[in-house]
Computed example of a mutant assay.
Amino acid sequence: MAEPMGPVLVVIPTYNERDNLGPIVGRLHAAVPTADVLVVDDASPDGTGELADEMAAADPRIRVLHRTEKAGLGAAYLAGFGVALQGEHQVVVEMDADGSHAPEDLPALLAALSDADLVLGSRYVEGGEVRNWPAHRQWLSRGGNLYSRLALGVGIRDITGGYRAFRRQVLEELDLGEVASQGYCFQVDMAWRAVQAGFRVREVPITFVERERGTSKMSGAIVGEALWQVTRWGFAHRFRRLRRDQPVTEDRAGA
């Protein structure tokens, strides 16, 4: 498959994903053979980093970034973005290592960049689907997305999803040094910043499948951070709009 936007780098953060990494990268290269892969491993004790090194030694399309501790999803992606911006890749993709993001959906995300700057793989637009999630996880995800949509005043239906493709320009122009959020709050943060900066954001349907091997990294702390941050961003946005929309009085206008 030819990528009209230029070279593609898929950033895959890992922590204890040894059983999942090989199959997901194999499927990725079957779907998009020309894509490069950057595995960002947070010192996985199960040997994921060592496996990634072996894969990189056998395939020039694969690189590995080793980090010294488990510092969270957001920090891992930001480190991967930094590597991407040092090279010539024109498209940077976020993809989970656990198999929940089907590599077979990646061609559709890349194609959608023809008229977008950031493409979100969406579970909650027409054609999107979630498989094998218990009811409480579905309600948590849908509720978080609804709350984010209302609080921020955006039309994105799956702003918490982590399967997405950025044009290089988006990462170059956003101030990534200001991004400190983690978990799925990081995903809300990046999409919100892109919207605020005026970039074109588009959603395409994906099929999300719950992991079959390993343990989910979701926790109550991650959910709590997201609710607090989204609430704060929403209030700040509305306050700025109120100030901007206030009429200018004679005193404020001056002579």
Rank of each mutant, 00 (worst) to 15 (best):
M95T: 06
R63K: 08
Y184Q: 11
R63G: 12
L106D: 08
P4I: 03
V25Y: 06
H66P: 07
L9Q: 01
M55Q: 08
D117V: 09
D98F: 11
A165G: 05
Q187G: 04
V8G: 04
Q169D: 10
L85T: 02
P4R: 08
G214M: 10
E17H: 13
M55Y: 12
V10A: 10
A31N: 02
I62N: 06
A71I: 15
E88P: 03
V209W: 06
A221Q: 07
G72A: 12
A197S: 11
R149E: 12
V64W: 00
R149T: 08
I156E: 13
N20T: 13
F239I: 11
G224S: 14
Q138V: 14
A102Y: 10
F81R: 05
R164V: 04
A111E: 10
D36C: 13
H29C: 00
I222V: 02
D105V: 07
Q86H: 05
F199P: 04
A151V: 04
G234Q: 11
L106Q: 09
Q138D: 04
H66A: 15
T207P: 10
V40I: 07
A75S: 14
R123A: 07
V25Q: 01
A253D: 08
Q246T: 12
Q229F: 03
L28P: 09
G99I: 04
E210R: 15
R164D: 03
D36W: 05
V119Q: 01
P107N: 06
A76G: 07
L113S: 00
I156P: 05
R123Q: 06
P107T: 07
L51K: 10
D53F: 03
A84K: 10
V201H: 02
M95D: 08
Q86I: 02
A236T: 01
W233D: 05
R213K: 14
L109T: 03
L113Y: 00
E129K: 15
V25H: 03
G183R: 02
A71D: 13
V37C: 04
V230Y: 09
W133T: 00
E225V: 10
V91M: 12
N16Q: 06
V204H: 12
L152Y: 01
L109E: 02
A135N: 05
D53A: 14
A97R: 03
L21T: 08
M1K: 03
G128N: 12
E3M: 02
L150T: 04
R200M: 10
E178P: 03
L242W: 13
L176Y: 10
A253H: 12
R252Q: 14
A102L: 15
A180D: 13
V154W: 14
L140R: 13
R131Q: 13
G128W: 08
G234R: 08
D36Q: 11
R67T: 07
Q182R: 12
M218A: 09
R123T: 13
